[in-house]
Design a protein around this nucleic acid. Structure first.
Lengths: 342, 342
DNA sequence: CTGTTAGCGCATTCAG
DNA sequence: CTGAATGCGCTAACAG
């Protein structure tokens, strides 16, 4: 029976030095390629490394260099949430790309419980990584303070509602995006609109609402906005139900995200209204769901991969020692995706 | 202008020792709680820590302890893929839970390029983590060899097609699941079935096909299986097109996953067939999409969170030094979810 | 209970 | 170009 051993004695730099017949300082130089090593030593060291299967120890190197060549991406989600959103997943890929090219390994940590948040906070304060990318999708922004005493650079994925947190951010131009798609509705002659707003704790949510208001200008009426408790499909259904009695007078639902829009869509269909003939519906995010509905969702696309790349680049700038204003915000453009629902 | 500093001089254990008026060995003991420290020293140390904002250095601790209290979950995806699948995301949450409870911090690494694979391979060989969870969804299993020389325990998320890799695995009982849902079809009087098989490089794919064969037994005919190139919706559409000429004689499509099933569903609808009245369709996975189709998809559910938990538990066993057979495989049961499409 | 000391594995001086 | 020595920050073993 083959079994898996859980222990081992790995070779150290001294072992290969001895085997190559040089001092271990020379091996170190060889490994880091900084100084020159004689060709003869080099080949002998290479052979010794090959023979011993030597690989440098990560902790020792980090300790000596006072840096880890590592960046941690931290995702904060609600306690019981299990799914990492697609947008975050795409951003991860984007960030991983640029950070990798710069020689950094990206690690992802998930904070989805009080215990994990505590553990991560502790890690952050232990020079665990050279920099941090913070995605907090959650109402509870308890991780926000975790980085205050780490001397390391931090970049956030969203505009913070807490002005006291000195972390620059990369976000989407949510306000403009929501404004534009609302105008798109107006331009199509839809003027009796309802806005289904996202949860109030989210800055993103409020920004999008502002965009809706921008588009309507004077005509905006507080009664035409429905405030959802979360970003989920069910909330969209609730919204449609809430406005059921005046559905005949409404010709469009502008929704703060796709999931909500799908809820509205489904509920309108159940009520017997045709989308977009009777009532149009728009989403926001261009999630994978947007093309699986019938009719397909007209929505606002955000390039999440670019989001991640941009965050990674900003972090790299900071890692290189560039000075970045603590409240610097970079806004990425969005784009209307015209499909069938509006 | 507030700016972000990228450097700092963090206090060490000696700083707090000096401030507390004790030796730093005592501080170490205090921190690790192993030995007893006098109450007087304890309070003084606590105060000093508070005052200096001290936090132990991770690398130093790892180096001295020869362990990192960290587990790395590695996801291997196709080069250009950006999305971490929902099932993986849920498994991450499950693993994070049990590992966290045991005091381990889970880190996720994504291997989605040759460069990142190389970087990760190197990390793995540097005592970067105490154990590894490996998710490889990719045809290219180049990471498979990366763990051969690390003395650390590894658990895979899938049965490997490479019997030479000495990593135990936790997987779903794909074969039985596919068999059961096929029988479900047969029991409903659907006997003229087509099986849409997943891509050939995937062991999962082949296991599910075996399950279909098991259910049909003698009646199985090779001509009733369509071999898809991947797991995507488009492949499902292709399958329906392929069998278009004999759709009248077919009363059911058993599909190897939900995405494919949705493709079949959509294409059948386009062809004017009613699902499930004319033709039934089943999926596999119970992905989030399964409830967004019309009709909703009857499918096979796998508890991905439990998958992650199970993997985490197995890894913990190994971390505790338990001997696990290198080819041990734990299979998790699946469950039919009856909705509307079959 | 506590101070002292010897590593952990490696990078980086400084001589030579 | 290379060997020897020092230190990174901390744990653990050892006296006391």
């Amino acid at each position: 029976m083959v079994t898996v051993a859980a222990v081992s004695k790995r070779p150290t730099i001294r072992d290969v030095a001895k085997l190559a017949g040089v001092s271990y300082g020379t091996v170190s130089r060889y490994l880091n390629g900084s100084d020159h090593v004689s060709e003869r030593s080099a080949t002998r060291i290479a052979a010794a490394i090959e023979q011993t299967q030597y690989a440098p120890n990560n902790a020792a190197r980090s300790l000596a260099q006072q840096r880890t060549l590592t960046v941690a991406l931290i995702i904060q989600v609600e306690s019981n949430e299990t799914i990492v959103q697609n947008s975050v997943s795409e951003a991860m890929a984007g960030a991983n790309l640029v950070l990798g090219d710069a020689g950094y390994q990206m690690l992802t940590l998930i904070a989805n419980s009080e215990a994990s948040t505590r553990r991560i906070t502790q890690l952050v304060n232990s020079d665990f990584a050279d920099g941090y990318l913070l995605f907090s999708m959650s109402e509870d922004d308890s991780l926000g303070n975790a980085f205050l005493h780490t001397g390391k650079p931090v970049v956030r994925s969203e505009i913070s509602d807490r002005g006291d947190l000195p972390y620059p951010a990369v976000d989407f131009a949510n306000r403009e995006g929501q404004r534009d798609v609302t105008r798109y509705m107006l331009d199509k002659g839809r003027s009796r609109l309802v806005y289904v707003c996202g949860p109030g704790y989210s800055p993103t949510s409020l920004n999008r609402l502002e965009g809706f208001k921008d588009a309507l200008g004077e005509r905006f009426d507080e009664r035409q906005v429905y405030y959802a408790d979360d970003w989920e499909t069910y909330s969209g259904e609730m919204a449609a139900v809430e406005y059921q009695h005046m559905l005949g007078k409404i010709d469009g639902f502008v929704c703060a995200n796709d999931s909500i829009a799908i809820g509205v869509l489904n509920q309108l269909t159940r009520f017997g209204y045709r989308v977009p003939d009777d009532i149009a519906v728009t989403g926001f995010d261009d999630s994978p769901f947007a093309v699986m509905t019938n009719p397909k969702l007209t929505t606002v696309r955000q390039d999440s991969k670019a989001h991640g790349q941009s965050m990674g680049e900003l972090l790299l700038d900071m890692l290189r020692g560039e000075t970045v204003d603590a409240h610097y915000v970079k806004l990425l453009p969005t784009q209307i995706v015209e499909r069938q629902s509006a």
